[in-house]
Design a protein around this nucleic acid. Structure first.
Lengths: 121, 121
DNA sequence: ATGGTAATTAGCTTACAGCCTAAATAATGG
DNA sequence: CCATTATTTAGGCTGTAAGCTAATTACCAT
């Protein structure tokens, strides 16, 4: 198996519940949006929120246990990065399941794509 | 604008939070799975669960307010149906947002697609 | 060693989701 | 009308998610 497919597989196999639960929080979605752009340390993430570091740490824990992010300790820092495969596969599979039709995506999506995720908080 | 794009638009515009919150419950995802197959009355839905009718009614309310289902009163029955557009557009847009790469979907998805949604409860 | 910075763990509080039962509303049929 | 059935509303209980502060662990530098 290639690469970090472990996390992706975990999220898809038994973790649908955990994934959706993780995504149900605006703060966590915001974290994912940041990480989609680039990896960050726990502190850098916390700096972008008006929330205590322990709270952010907890959110990161939820995301990690859902297989949506990966952490790597480097020195005294902990770098977090997104696991795209996991999110994409889980959500795509789910849509296929519930909406078998699955049109490719309408025009609107293009517009939506532009809106920063930040303003959804 | 075509069809019942209202609900879909609502879900996409301001309701991302509501949609993900709605999807965070296994019971509600199960309801959606049933409705994906065919429309049902509130009672028919409740019959499929080991849960009181008021509780199911509440779940249906959450799904409706997220724009994921539509209700139509016919006689003394209330028929619920899924709003595919809403779910598909919201989730697809979200995936595009966070995982710009968006490969079409790997082999695994086919396998996953087969598993009944029921056993995720 | 000591002190400083990064991050997490522990412990506590509060708010609310989710479940239930009982009661209310609405439609149907005798 | 009155009884019956379908569904929702009201009200209450309980568990837990999510936030905070204080304390701990881990690492680095002097």
């Amino acid at each position: 198996m290639p690469d970090q497919t472990d996390a992706a597989a975990a999220a898809e196999t038994g973790g649908i519940q955990k994934v959706f639960e993780a995504l149900s929080s605006a703060a966590r979605r915001k974290i994912l949006a940041y990480l989609a752009h680039s990896s960050l340390t726990a502190g850098e993430i916390a700096d972008r929120f008006d929330m205590s570091k322990p709270s952010i740490s907890q959110h990161l824990g939820v995301l990690e246990s859902a297989g949506l992010v990966r952490k790597e300790k480097r020195g005294q820092y902990v770098h977090y990065s997104i696991v795209q495969e996991s999110l994409a596969n889980t959500l795509n599979s789910y849509v296929q399941e519930v909406c078998p039709v699955s049109r490719p995506l309408k025009k609107e999506s293009a517009a939506l794509k532009d809106r920063s995720d930040a303003d959804e908080s």
